[in-house]
């Protein structure tokens, strides 16, 4: 092989090999994931809500007339009385302010996803960094990060969010950041650190050091990639807690959001329909069921990923 050829052939072959490993482990993990079943149920629910979220803008641009169906400022002129029970025009009825519940539900699904994924990403980026750095350096760096984690864990997240929302306007983006920081520097960081501890004692870390590899090289090339499966797992759990926190805060009316599932229940409550569940079921069930379902779905996916990542949990 000539030098010029090798110049191009090596990276190509390397990337092909890496891709092959990635696909192979993806295939194996997928098979394990499928076998747990609960993960598939979770994935199906997530898929359903993803479709709802994607369908909303399309419906608004085609069959749903914005004046009537807008989730925030719409008004069902075609109904004489608000809230109106489900009908052909409004499949899940309307809320006390005359807005279409199905439209609200679908519109909110998108922001729930964005919130969950952003919170999860922030958590995992921070948690992985904290875990890898604390485990690798040890000593005072570890002590500092772990004491910080203790503080984060001890902090009652909901109360903190209530205080913060009173002080500054908290929207979805801020909420995601706060949840991500609390969990990333807190519990997720601690879990990833304990995983990282089992990586830093591997002889390949010593081999990299004796090759002359710097801290940055070792953390990035050897530790972080071996934490990723667990990081990904904790992303799922963070999504659950983010959606749940959002629901609680919106219900209490503490978030500056235009529409969300929690806010839908809040509207019901402030209009005084909360205790008349049997009569006005469409005001409560769609939103609360969605919160429960989507939270459980991510939790189920997480549980089943847990079995993929931790072979010891695998049922025989």
């Amino acid at each position: 092989m000539s030098a010029v050829n090798a110049q191009h052939a090596v990276p190509t072959a390397l990337w092909r090999a890496r891709l092959r490993l990635a696909l192979q482990s993806l295939r194996e993990n997928w098979q394990l994931f499928v076998r747990t079943r609960i993960g598939i149920i979770g994935l199906a629910i997530i898929g359903l809500y993803a479709l709802l979220a994607l369908a909303h803008p399309i419906l608004m641009n085609t069959v749903w007339e914005p004046r009537t169906y807008d989730p925030v400022v719409g008004y069902a002129f075609d109904e004489t009385q608000q809230p109106a029970p489900p009908s052909l025009k409004h499949l899940l009825g309307t809320d006390p302010l005359g807005r279409d519940i199905l439209s609200q539900l679908m519109f909110s699904a998108r922001s729930e996803f964005l919130l969950g994924l952003l919170a999860a990403t922030v958590t995992v980026v921070i948690g992985t960094a904290v875990g890898a750095i604390a485990a690798y350096f040890g000593g005072w760096v570890d002590t500092l990060l772990m004491r910080l984690a203790d503080i984060m864990i001890m902090m009652p997240a909901i109360s903190v969010l209530i205080v913060l929302s009173a002080l500054i306007g908290v929207e979805h983006f801020e909420l995601a950041l706060i949840i991500g920081i609390l969990s990333g520097f807190g519990a997720t960081g601690v879990v990833l650190k304990s995983q990282a501890l089992s990586v830093v004692v591997k002889p390949y870390i010593d081999a990299a050091r004796s090759a002359g590899g710097g801290h940055f090289h070792i953390i990035l090339v050897h530790i972080v990639p071996n934490l990723l499966p667990l990081s990904f797992l904790y992303m799922m759990f963070t999504v659950t807690s983010a959606i749940f926190s959002e629901a609680v805060l919106s219900f209490l009316g503490l978030l500056d959001v235009r529409m969300s599932w929690g806010l839908m229940i809040h509207t019901t409550e402030s209009a005084g329909y909360l205790l008349q569940v049997t009569e006005f079921w469409w005001l409560i069930f769609p939103a609360s069921l969605s919160i429960t379902l989507l939270c459980s779905a991510f939790y189920l996916v997480g549980r089943s990923l847990d079995e993929v990542v931790n072979p010891r949990l695998r049922s025989r």
Partner: peptide
Amino acid sequence: SMNPRRTIFDTVAEPLHV
């Protein structure tokens, strides 16, 4: 003593790389 996620080339070339 080898990172399971790296190819043999990556492993042996690591000293040259760093």
